[in-house]
Computed example of a mutant assay.
Amino acid sequence: MTSREHHLVELVDTDGAPVGSATVEQAHQAPGRLHRAFSVFLRGPDGRVLLQQRAAAKTRFPLRWANTCCGHPAPGEDLATAAGRRLAEEVGLDGVALTEAGVYAYRAQDPVTGRVEHEYDHVLVGDLPAAWLPRPDPGEVAAIRWVEPTELRAELATDSGSYAPWLAGVTECLVRYLDAGEESAGGR
Rank of each mutant, 00 (worst) to 15 (best):
E100S: 14
D127E: 15
A143S: 12
D121I: 05
P149W: 00
L63E: 14
A101H: 10
A57C: 12
L156D: 05
T171H: 05
T113A: 07
A88D: 14
A130Q: 07
R145C: 01
R135P: 12
E100M: 13
L93N: 03
V91S: 06
R60L: 11
Y106I: 02
A66S: 11
V49K: 04
D137V: 01
E151M: 11
Y163K: 03
T113W: 08
G76W: 11
R145E: 07
E182L: 14
G92L: 06
E182I: 12
E89W: 08
T113I: 06
L51Y: 06
W146L: 03
V91L: 09
W65T: 11
Y177E: 14
E151H: 13
R135H: 14
A56I: 09
R176M: 04
V125M: 02
G161I: 04
L87D: 10
H72D: 12
L124V: 01
W65L: 08
A130H: 05
E155C: 13
E172T: 14
Q53A: 05
A157W: 06
P62C: 00
Q53D: 01
R60F: 10
A185N: 08
Y163Q: 04
A185K: 10
A57T: 15
R86W: 06
G95N: 03
A142W: 03
R60Q: 09
V170I: 12
A154H: 13
G126F: 04
A88F: 11
V175S: 02
W132M: 09
D179N: 15
T99K: 09
V147D: 01
A185S: 14
L152T: 08
G71Q: 07
A157P: 11
G181Y: 07
G95I: 03
W65I: 07
